[in-house]
Amino acid sequence: MTTIDDLAKIGTSTWLDDLSRDRLESGNLQELLKTKSIVGVTTNPAIFAAAMTQGNAYDDDIAKLKAERAKADEAVYSLAIDDVRNACDVFKEVYEQSGGKDGRVSIEVDPRISDDGEATIAQARELWNRVDRDNVMIKIPATDGSLGAITEALADGISVNVTLIFSLERYKQVIEAFKTGIRRAEANDLDISKIHSVASFFVSRVDVEIDKRLEKIGTDEALALRGKAGIANAQQAYALYQSELENASDLPEGTNLQRPLWASTGVKNPDYAPTLYVSELAGPNTVNTMPEKTIDATLDSDSLHGDTLSDSAEESAKVLEDIKAVGVDLDDVFVLLEREGDEKFVSAWTELLEALTPRLV
Score class of each variant (00 low, 15 high):
residue 124 A to E: 06
residue 124 A to N: 08
residue 128 W to H: 14
residue 130 R to V: 09
residue 131 V to T: 05
residue 132 D to S: 13
residue 132 D to M: 03
residue 132 D to W: 03
residue 132 D to L: 01
residue 134 D to S: 10
residue 135 N to L: 04
residue 135 N to F: 06
residue 136 V to D: 00
residue 137 M to F: 15
residue 137 M to Y: 11
residue 139 K to V: 03
residue 141 P to F: 11
residue 142 A to T: 01
residue 142 A to G: 01
residue 144 D to Y: 10
residue 145 G to K: 06
residue 146 S to M: 04
residue 147 L to H: 03
residue 147 L to T: 04
residue 147 L to V: 01
residue 152 E to N: 15
residue 152 E to G: 12
residue 156 D to G: 08
residue 158 I to D: 05
residue 158 I to Q: 03
residue 159 S to N: 03
residue 161 N to G: 11
residue 161 N to V: 10
residue 162 V to M: 08
residue 162 V to T: 15
residue 163 T to S: 12
residue 164 L to F: 08
residue 165 I to T: 00
residue 165 I to G: 04
residue 167 S to W: 06
residue 167 S to M: 06
residue 167 S to C: 07
residue 167 S to V: 06
residue 169 E to V: 11
residue 169 E to N: 15
residue 169 E to P: 04
residue 170 R to E: 01
residue 173 Q to F: 07
residue 173 Q to Y: 08
residue 176 E to W: 05
residue 177 A to Q: 00
residue 181 G to F: 02
residue 181 G to M: 01
residue 181 G to H: 04
residue 182 I to C: 05
residue 182 I to M: 12
residue 183 R to E: 06
residue 184 R to L: 07
residue 184 R to Q: 14
residue 185 A to D: 05
residue 185 A to K: 03
residue 186 E to L: 12
residue 187 A to S: 15
residue 189 D to K: 14
residue 189 D to E: 14
residue 189 D to S: 14
residue 189 D to C: 05
residue 190 L to C: 00
residue 190 L to W: 02
residue 190 L to A: 04
residue 191 D to E: 14
residue 193 S to W: 08
residue 197 S to W: 02
residue 198 V to R: 01
residue 198 V to M: 03
residue 200 S to W: 07
residue 200 S to P: 10
residue 203 V to G: 07
residue 203 V to R: 05
residue 203 V to P: 08
residue 204 S to W: 09
residue 204 S to H: 09
residue 207 D to E: 05
residue 207 D to C: 06
residue 208 V to C: 03
residue 208 V to D: 14
residue 210 I to V: 15
residue 212 K to A: 15
residue 216 K to H: 00
residue 218 G to N: 07
residue 220 D to Q: 12
residue 220 D to I: 05
residue 220 D to F: 04
residue 221 E to K: 14
residue 222 A to V: 12
residue 224 A to D: 07
residue 225 L to I: 08
residue 226 R to A: 07
residue 226 R to V: 12
residue 229 A to H: 08
residue 229 A to P: 08
residue 230 G to D: 00
residue 230 G to K: 04
residue 232 A to R: 11
residue 232 A to Y: 13
residue 233 N to F: 07
residue 234 A to M: 11
residue 234 A to Y: 11
residue 236 Q to F: 00
residue 236 Q to K: 13
residue 236 Q to P: 00
residue 237 A to F: 13
residue 239 A to V: 11
residue 240 L to V: 13
